[in-house]
Structures are given as C-alpha cells and as structure tokens.
Nucleic acid binder design. Sequence first.
DNA 1: GAAGAGAGCGCC
DNA 2: AAAGGGCGCTCTCTTC
Length: 682
Amino acid sequence: MALLQSVQTHFKNNPTEPTLAPVLPINPDHYSGSIERVNTVDGLRELIVFAYQLPLTAISVDFEFNFTSPAIPLRSGKEKYDIRSIQPLLMAVTLVSNEPNSLALHNSVIDLTKPNLATELQPLLDLPVTYIAHHAKAELHCLWKLGLREPNLWWDTCIAERARYLGKHVFDTKRHFDCLSDEIEARNTHKEDNRIRYGLAATTERYGIEHQFSQSKADLQQSFLNYRGDDFSQNQIEYTAEDAIVAAKLYLPQYQQLLMQGVANHLITVEMPWVITNAAMEWHGVVVDREKCNSILNASTPKLKLLSEQLAGMGLENPNSHQQKEVFFQQLGLLDHFNKGGQYSFKLQLLKDLAHIHPAIELLAEFNKVQAIERDLLLKPAIVGEDGRVHPEHKQLEVVTGRQSCANPNLLGLPGVMRPLIISLKGYGICEADYAQVEIAITAAVYGDANLVEKFNQGDIYTAMAQEFFAPSLSEEHRTCNSDTFKQHHKDKRDIMKQCTLGIIYGLSAFGLASRLKISEFAAKQQMAQFLAMFPTLERMMDTAPQEGAIRGYVSTSTGLQRQRVGKGGLTRNERNWMVNMPVQGTAAAIFKVAGNRLYQLYKAYDARLILAVHDAFIFEAPLELMDTVAELTELTEQIMIQAVQEYYPQIKPRVDLNYSHPECWTKDSDAESVERWIAGR
DNA sequence: GAAGAGAGCGCC
DNA sequence: AAAGGGCGCTCTCTTC
C-alpha cells in the first residue's frame, strides 16, 4: 500500500503549486518472473514510477492491434490494411534492468481497451534509453494513433536481422550453368541455405532463444485482428508479453553479432533513426487528386477498348500475350524484325523504331502504355485511408543495396507524367529537394578518384561530357555554353551521356554502349577507353574492388552496411557489376537516410513533413507561406542535405535542386499539366 | 488451383 | 557466349 500511496502522491502534482513528493524505492523483484497485467490508471502510474527507478538497459515494447477498416484485396492475392485504422489493443512492456552480473526482465501487459490508459503512457516513452521492438514501424503507428510522441532511440531487431543477412536471399538468375540439372540443384541449395525468415519466432530460433508461442504465433496474431471487444484470454496476454520478452532477450546477442560483423555502426547511425523517419512518412501518406484519377480511368478504359478492338480486327486477340504476338507477326511475315538474339522482343523502344512497318505496331505500343497506367493501384478509390490520404508501404532494408523500396502502391515507380496526381493539402505546398547527380559524386568519393571529384565539383558533369562527345555536331556556342543553355537545346544528348556515364560505371559492355549510342562496337570501345582514361583510379578500383569482395564474401558501403555474396568461386559478370555498384548505390542511400533523419527532426518545428523519399530526392509538404515568402525552410533543407554528404566526403561539393514552382502538386520537370495532356492524348 | 518463372515497363 | 546496377507491378504461361 505504501507503494500505491507514493505513486498517487507523485502524480497529484499541481502545476501551480508543485509538491515535492518523496520518491520511495520499489522492490525490483516486484515484477520479475511474472507478467503484471495493467488495467487501471493507477496500475500504469505505478509501473511508470517503477520504470523511473530502475537502472535501465532498455525497454522492449510490443503492441497487439487490429484494424477498424476491412482490408482491401491486392492483385497479388495479398491484402492491405488501412494503417490509419489501426487500433492498439494491448501493449507489452518489458523493462530490462542492469542488475549485478545479469539483466533482469520486468514484464507488463497494458490493456489499452480500458479507459484513460493511453493518455497516461507518455512518461514511459520519454526515458533516455533504447526502445526495442521487432519491426518497430507497427509500434510507432500505434503510438501515433494514440496521440503519443515516439521515443528517440530504437533498436529494431527485425531491421538488424535484415542487415545481418543482406544479399543472402538473392539467387543469381544470370549465372551460367552447364546443364539444367546443375541449375536446379543450385536453386534448391540456395532455397534451403537461404530461407531466412525475419519474423520474431524464426529470428529468436537462430539465436537459440525460446519463443513459447513460436508454433501458434500466426493464430494468436489473427485472434487480435479478429478482436471484437471480448475479454483477452490468459493465452493472449502471455503471448503479447512473450513477444516483448524475446525481443529483449535478442537485443544483446544480436547487437554483439552485428558488432563482430562490423555492421553495428551503420545500424546505429543510419538505419535505427530511419526506422522512425520511414514510419512517419508512411503514417503521413500523400494526398491524391481523386478527380484526376477518375478522369484517367474514364479516358483510358474506352481508349483501351478501342485499341484492343483495332488490334483484334487485325488478327491479334490478346496484346498481352507474348505467344500471340509472335504468331501474329509471323503471319504478317514481320517476326524477324523483333528477333533479338534468338528471342523475340516486343519492348517499347523496339516498337517505336518499327512503327513505320505496320500500323499494328504503334497500336500495340499505345496499348501497353495505357494499360500500365490504367491498372495502377493509385487510381483505385479503395486505396484511400480513413484520413483521406494514401499510405504506400515504405520498405526498409528489404533490397540488397540498402535502398528504400515502396509498394501498394509503388509511388517510387510512378510514371513521371502521373506525378501531378500527388497534390498538397489546402494551405500547404509540395517541394522536391533532389541531389543533383549524386551517384557520380559518391562514385568519385567511394573509389577515391580525384579527377572525377574535380569534374563533379566543376558543375554539370553530363553536360561537360556531352559537349566533348558530340563536339562535331554542336555549334561553337553550344560546345562551351553553360549547362542550363545546353539542357534547353540538347536535352537528348545530355540524357545519352547520363545513361552512358552511369552505364560504364555499372559494367556496361562495349556492345551495350554501341547499341545505346547507335554507333559501332569499335567506336564504343574507343569511347569507353577515352572515358576511363580520364579516371585511372576509378578504372583500377573497378577492377580490384570486386576481387577483394570475392575474397571476403561481401562488399560494403562507407557506413559499413554489407551485401553478402551467395555464390562461391570465380565471380560472374553480374556479381562483378553489383560488387562495383553496391558500395555506390548503398552509400548514396545511407547518406540520403542520414539527411532524411535530420529533415524529419527539423520539420517538426515547421509543421512540415516528408511525404516521399525517392532514392536521391525528398518530397516534402510544408505550409505554403514558408515556401512563398520565407526561404528559411527550403534553405535549411538544402543545407542539411549538403552537410550530410560533406560529413562523409568533405571533398565533394554536392548540389541540391529545390523545386517548388508548382507547390500544388508533385511534378516531373515542373510540368503540372502532364496528366491533363495524357488524358487529352498528348 | 496455387505458385513461380519470364517478359516487359515504370522509377532512381 | 553474353552484352549495365537496383527495385515493384501486371500479365501470361507452365508446373506441381
């Protein structure tokens, strides 16, 4: 009873007349070994007082929740819940305290369906310790749903585990096999060896930690999704606690493992803060112009119908069928035009090039483009959350380079013309801040090529290269003009150089370069040699880096994130290419995340928010007046992005382009009318 | 009938 | 003999 009284006194603080309540020590054994059920405000306050007395190592948290809106089916057969309709039910809290010679776990389960508990939770989230969760995004969404502020420090055991095995799940489909049985065997071996599951139960098993509900986890998870206001069973309570307990037990061994592996620094400095930034971006979502979506659907459905009827009239029933297209062009005697090394290809570029030989070809190209846009999930009204916004899934560390990926809908792959579908809230504007040519800068820095650094620092590197490459066909003026003028007059030439520069760095062959530039293979070879001769260090590193990678079994970013190699023995061409590329792509991604983490904190003070992170560009939403009249926010954004690069590579002078010429929507190249023009038929 | 592979196209 | 890195999505076609 003395305990309860001290707790009550503690919380009866009157702001105008603060009382100095004596802090009475609570017996640390109070919670140990059992699960404390917290169903009342007093019980929660007692837990908080206890937490503030403990010598804490960390706090492990886990929510059980359901969704108040039904899931919508996806084309893939999976379903998507509206994260905004998340309803936290139970919160497990395991306090990890640093006792002599050991860690002690104090376990509680808070019943959030009981009145007034959520509003009292904040102090439990403000402790200066690390918060542990397995896939913390869900925990963060629950906290924000409850109107709480998130803790600053997280250790996400799922993200850590992904970093540990990054690259292991990839099967090299381009690897050459002498016979089919070899390939089948390799695939099967890969499946057995690399079926790494990142769920909590599978993860704990790898560390020899027992999860009492590992067998029934899926059922119990489902029991919460189906929750309809019943009382929680003892089983449900124990399961909830167990998730937080095993995540807590995972913390030290997992951290040690990653320290030994050399990945811990990257996790602490980049990924763990990004867990919050990323979850917030998903939570905030984007506003979509529903009227424009409907206009697209209204325009494209008849358009598709007409196109397929026209094609059917010519004899092609299903324009999506590769087989039927082969038969169709065979009958026309035109199939040879589509022959690409024994295979027949109906790619868009080829269709464009061949448009003149038969009217069906242009129709086919048009059909493909219109269909791709019409089917986009973004256009479906059901995708809108209960807050009126669309919340694509932002995936962290699910791809081998450490870049972000995005799904349902994949807004990072939204065709440029469709960008104006993403609009700003009333009173707010959208701004895009993108790193100009950052991968070239990172290439220069990662591989230490002084000449490439210098070229980058001078200005637009693609313009410089285009002026050199296309010199004979350029006017005197354009051979030496600045990049803005050059972009105006020769965007196509600069684009080719961009492709080639990146292509050469990523392992493009003379053959590939030749076909892109439509020059001879011999000329391409000369061009490549000329290019690489300017950057001898880069050339040498592109040779040695994969060899070293093959020996140690991985390559890494400058922050220490590693991509593991699956294969053994000699490197395949594909492996050599990604071993050169991953340190560039991955380092750019890491620095990008560091910048994003700072922007996330900066924007809190300005009522601004990140809405998308597109590999080298941040799209953010901010009150309009901050963009129109006060340059402060956009300038700070630019500074933060530049500083993030320079902290890692002081020799680089990064450039950031800020675009808010049409703050009412997201655009490509400031073209706010592209959707209308697409609807009108360009 | 589900699952996976392949082809193709969008993005950086 | 093949011929640029990294993704997600949708479709067809094959296979179990």
